[in-house]
Amino acid sequence: MSVETLDRIETKVFEKTKSLLDTEMHYCPGCGHGVAHRLIAEVIDEMNIVEDTIGVAPVGCSVFAYNYLGMDFSQAAHGRASAVATGIKRVLPEKYVFSYQGDGDLAAIGTGETIHTCNRGENILIIFINNGIYGMTGGQMAPTTLPNMKSTTSPFGRDTKSMGYPLKITELIAALPGTYYVTRQSVHKPLNVRRAKKAIQKGFEYQKLNKGTCFVEIVSNCPSNWKMTPVESNHWMDEHMLAFYPLGDIKVPNVKEA
């Protein structure tokens, strides 16, 4: 009989979190929505706040977010997610409320709601997925489509002279006194995933302070409509999207206040 002082134990260090449901996601291979969904589920499970959280799903590819995330959910009309979230938060101020919106939803048809929700400083978390294109409707130009970037409605590239410029709405809303924490992240590389998760966690935690709106932009990809493989799309995003939409915190709370 041998007597050892050291043992090797195999422990699980990563598995799908409970609030990310088993339902298979309808997203295309390599789409960043899946990672963003998972991070939200992980944060909510780790904070143990499923019972106190209500999500608002947008119109767009992530309209079915409620099929994959296991908390109570309200599905909003196109662009109105932050108004719907406002309604919920105002009558249930003790709950955590977040909206999950794409670029067309949040920065085109819903720009008014986005800006006024942030300007009122609603104590909600807005998660903004920016992939520079309308995914669900098949690759039309978005408010965040880059100059010269091709889409089905800018087939020769976005001509800023006639089609206008990409809207950096995150910088715009960071300037509003109602926002408390505004950051831009991505989920295409392990380090970025870790950072994005921290940002989402802060967004939830800060809600308890009642200091204003938290806004987490996640620059993401759209392999199908960018017409690239998932890996290529992540490289393209690194090179082009992140050059225009640089990652990092845009507005951070005053530490003393927090």
Partner: peptide, 17 residues
Amino acid sequence: AESEVASINMVYGAAGT
């Protein structure tokens, strides 16, 4: 609210509770 569009969607959210 900032508009009637926002009002009715706030009603939608709050009525859901």
